[in-house]
Amino acid sequence: MNILAIETTGALASVALIDEAGQVSMETSDQKMNHLQHLMPMVDQILSKRGLEINDLTYIAVSEGPGSFTGIRIGVSSARALAQALGLETIGVPTLKSFLYHVPEYKGVVCPIFDARRNQVYGGAYQWSDSKIKEVVAGDAYDLNGFLELLGQAFEPGGAGQTLPAQTVPGAAEPKAGEVTFFGDGIIPYREQIEAWQRASSNNNIRVLFAADDVRLQKASSIARLALELCRSGTLKSLYDLKPVYMRKAEAERKLEGK
């Protein structure tokens, strides 16, 4: 089995291949925001590096969003067309959740935030629990302060973020209660606000970390790993059901409704 994973929701596009054993390889573009131009050549490169033909693909997976609207569409329309041309099923991979695969066996809360401008973010918070993904804060479009408030609530006694994983992996670092690592391009504009939030007395039980540059943004390898999990759990879609997850209406629609 070979799953092709496409990631075009952020500033840099990447593609990855994963087989049933979970072996992943990835190609990343060095061209910012030129996904349309470089996507198919990248697919060609990764296939030839793995010694595969396009017909060796079993499923087409794509990072479905949130992220750049245009970026999401390039990925989803390319994935749909590949599936249409090859007669394959697709896997829609939630972009925010895929960050759980950025740092293997991380025990804290993974919190990707994408800058949606005007103090808005697309964000979510997730954590491994019993080898299953636990949603600490559901992925959605938020006002940054509202999002941080939800995140803080999750760490209050009885909150979702405080439950530690029952199984610890040998050799892995001891889980730290209340550790959150922020990912995504939202770190850059909102870092200070997040640090201020953490310093507030009600949140002083939370340790905030920011992802290192090399794991900060979306990566097709993580999309591929989550795609393999979704595939194992039977979450396959026909290409016609593969839809972008924008999490926000078009501005013109919002304005019209606001009238």
């Binding site: 349309l36 996507l39 198919m40 697919v43 060609d44 396009i54 609207f69 245009t70 569409r73 390039i74 329309s77 390319s78 994935a79 749909r80 067309a81 590949l82 249409q84 041309a85 090859l86």
Partner: peptide
């Protein structure tokens, strides 16, 4: 419209490449 054009293009490119 660039956003509109790229849907047709991404689709055409993927189909042409795959087949």
């Amino acid at each position: 419209l660039v956003g509109a054009l790229l849907i047709g293009l991404a689709t055409a490119k993927a189909m042409a490449y795959a087949r």
